[in-house]
Simulated scan of single mutants.
Amino acid sequence: MSKQSFRDLKNEIELKNAEIDELSIELDSKNEEINKLKLYSTKLKYEKKNLEDKLDTKIDYDKARIKELDELHEKILEKDKIIEDKQDQVRYLRSLIDDYKTQISSNSQELEIQLRKISKSYEDLLAQKDSIIKKQDEMIDKLTKSNEEIVKSNKTNVISLKLQNEKYQEIIDKLTKTN
């Protein structure tokens, strides 16, 4: 694995961490919104109670107030549903964050394992390279020695042939002189 690939993977991990930070910020925002909605819900419940108290004292006002209370109750239910939805969103976001953390951890472990394997393979390749170079050096030495021996042998053969040639020349000269 090249340094560039490792850097890319490291950058990807940093991006995932940034996404986690963004999701955490969003989670905090959702929690604040839920708290506001809870306060608003509590306020609406309080208003409902006040309206119920007024209902007891003002019978003429009953029908209008009952309608208002029903509307407030519907709003409370809507707000409760919104709160439940927001809580579901928060749970979902938390599960996503946990999944991202698990995935990042798993990826980091896998990268470390791969880096170790690559380092080991690289070391093995270096050892093989050194072995090949050593064998090549030995072969070169053997070939050099063999070449030197061949050169010596050739010199000896050339000298021997010259001597033989000279002897034959003498014999030829003797034979040509005698004839």
Rank of each mutant, 00 (worst) to 15 (best):
N154H: 09
I172V: 04
K48D: 04
S95E: 13
E170L: 05
I150R: 11
D130N: 11
E47F: 06
I76Q: 06
L72V: 07
K167F: 12
K174T: 07
I76M: 04
L37R: 13
Q103S: 15
D137Q: 15
K38N: 13
E14R: 11
K145G: 03
Y168W: 09
K134T: 15
E47T: 08
K58W: 04
N154Y: 06
N179V: 01
L69D: 00
K167P: 05
K63S: 09
R91I: 04
R91A: 07
Q109C: 02
R65F: 03
Y46P: 06
N179I: 01
D8M: 10
S153W: 02
S153H: 08
I34N: 10
K30P: 02
I25K: 13
Y46N: 15
E19D: 14
K81T: 13
D21W: 05
E166S: 15
L23G: 01
Y122D: 00
L175A: 03
L27M: 13
L175D: 02
D85Y: 02
L126D: 05
D173G: 01
N50E: 03
E170G: 01
N179R: 01
T176K: 12
V158T: 11
L69V: 02
I113Q: 06
Y100N: 05
D8Q: 13
H73M: 05
L126W: 01
D124M: 04
N31R: 11
R91H: 05
N147I: 04
N154V: 04
D141Y: 10
S24G: 05
E78W: 07
T57E: 15
D62T: 14
S153N: 14
N147H: 14
N154P: 00
N11M: 11
I66D: 01
A18M: 09
D85E: 04
K101L: 07
E71I: 03
Q109G: 00
